[in-house]
Simulated scan of single mutants.
Amino acid sequence: MQRYFVPSENWTDNRVIITDDDAHHINRVIRSRTGDEIICNHPNGKAAVCRITGIEKEKVDTTISEWLEESVEPLIDVTIAQGLPKSDKLEFVLQKGTELGAAAFIPVQADRSVVIWDEKKAEKKMKRYAKIIKEASEQSHRNKIPTVKNVTPLTKLVSESNDYDIKLFAYEEEAKTVDFQSFGKAVSTMRPGDRILIVIGPEGGFSSREAESLKQNKFIPVRLGPRILRTETASLYALASISYHFEELRWT
């Protein structure tokens, strides 16, 4: 059943109104008809099966048939701070990271980031990122849409990181040491409800200055397996590992 995230102002008693791109999608893409059912997600995380009662060009009226007692949101609140990569790799991280359960994303301007954001284009980029995450949330049946923050210098990220329970950064030099800190060990210390911040470097990784700053501010360097991962792979490795540990391992 097709799922849509609907702003809170479009919910009134037993009625939900769908507008804009979602209305176009219902009307022109999947060609729904009056009487068809869809799932509508409220920003508070609740979802309801809704029956279409009217379809116009830019508006779809529905009534709530039943509330769903479901949630696929992870037990761990994970924020991915992604060093700005080249090309469209950030879009890939946002899409796949949303599917894997990330709660938030922070694009980070790091020393070795080749890309430097043009402030004039930032608003356009953020709108595109919001659309990618919304569509990925609908596709993966998330209950909430992850947030994407504005590009943040690493120094600012460090200074604003005190609200997290566990702070990690993927450090390729950690993979080269004998007495390394494994990501698995870090995951084993996590508990349901924890807020986790995982920082991933851009192509080329972190500079020695950045690594030292992170360590001094209680970020733990971790190895993401014995192989060196691409920047767009690292965050997905971390999210998949956490998902397996908390959502699948208990069923084995």
Score class of each variant (00 low, 15 high):
Met1Val: 14
Met1Arg: 07
Met1Gln: 11
Arg3Thr: 11
Phe5Gln: 06
Val6Gly: 01
Asn10Ile: 00
Thr12Glu: 10
Asp13Glu: 15
Asn14Leu: 08
Ile17Val: 15
Thr19Trp: 00
His24Gly: 00
His25Tyr: 13
Asn27Gln: 13
Arg28Trp: 00
Arg28Asn: 14
Val29Lys: 13
Val29Gln: 10
Ser32Thr: 01
Thr34Gly: 05
Gly35Asp: 07
Gly35Val: 07
Glu37Leu: 06
His42Thr: 05
Pro43Leu: 10
Pro43Lys: 09
Lys46Trp: 01
Val49Pro: 01
Val49Phe: 09
Cys50Leu: 09
Arg51Ile: 15
Ile55Met: 05
Lys57Leu: 03
Leu68Gly: 05
Leu68Glu: 11
Glu69Met: 02
Val72Tyr: 14
Val72Ala: 09
Glu73Trp: 07
Glu73Ile: 06
Pro74Asp: 12
Leu75Glu: 14
Asp77Ser: 14
Leu84Cys: 04
Pro85Phe: 03
Ser87Gly: 00
Val93Trp: 00
Gln95Ser: 11
Lys96Asp: 06
Gly97Met: 05
Glu99Asp: 11
Leu100His: 07
Gly101Gln: 11
Ala102Phe: 13
Pro107Cys: 06
Ala110Gln: 05
Ala110Arg: 02
Asp111Ile: 08
Val115Met: 02
Trp117Leu: 15
Asp118Pro: 01
Glu119Phe: 01
Lys120Ile: 00
Lys121Trp: 04
Lys127Cys: 02
Lys127Met: 11
Lys131Arg: 15
Ile132Glu: 08
Ile133Glu: 04
Lys134Glu: 15
Glu138Arg: 02
Ile145Met: 06
Pro146Phe: 11
Thr152Ala: 09
Thr152His: 05
Thr152Asp: 09
Leu154Pro: 06
Leu157Trp: 08
Glu160Leu: 14
Asp165Phe: 07
Lys167Gln: 08
Leu168Ala: 14
Leu168Ile: 11
Ala170Arg: 03
Ala170Leu: 15
Tyr171Gly: 00
Tyr171Ile: 01
Glu173Ser: 13
Phe180Asn: 14
Phe180Trp: 00
Gln181Leu: 10
Gln181Ser: 13
Ser182His: 10
Gly184His: 14
Ala186Glu: 12
Val187Phe: 11
Ser188Thr: 13
Met190Val: 03
Met190Ala: 07
Arg191His: 12
Arg191Tyr: 03
Pro192Trp: 05
Asp194Ile: 00
Arg195Thr: 11
Ile196Asp: 04
Leu197Met: 14
Val199Ser: 12
Val199Asn: 01
Val199Thr: 14
Ile200Leu: 09
Gly201Gln: 02
Pro202Arg: 03
Glu203Val: 10
Gly204Tyr: 08
Ser207Glu: 09
Ser207Val: 07
Ala211Leu: 01
Glu212Met: 10
Ser213Lys: 11
Asn217Asp: 14
Lys218Asn: 15
Phe219Cys: 02
Pro221Met: 13
Pro221Trp: 12
Pro221Lys: 13
Val222Arg: 04
Gly225Ser: 14
Gly225Met: 10
Leu229Thr: 02
Thr233His: 12
Ser235Tyr: 03
Ser235Met: 07
Ser241Asp: 00
Ser241His: 02
Ser241Trp: 02
Ile242Cys: 01
Ile242Ser: 04
Ser243Asn: 14
Tyr244Pro: 04
Tyr244Cys: 08
Arg250Pro: 00
Trp251Glu: 08
Trp251Met: 12
Thr252Asp: 12
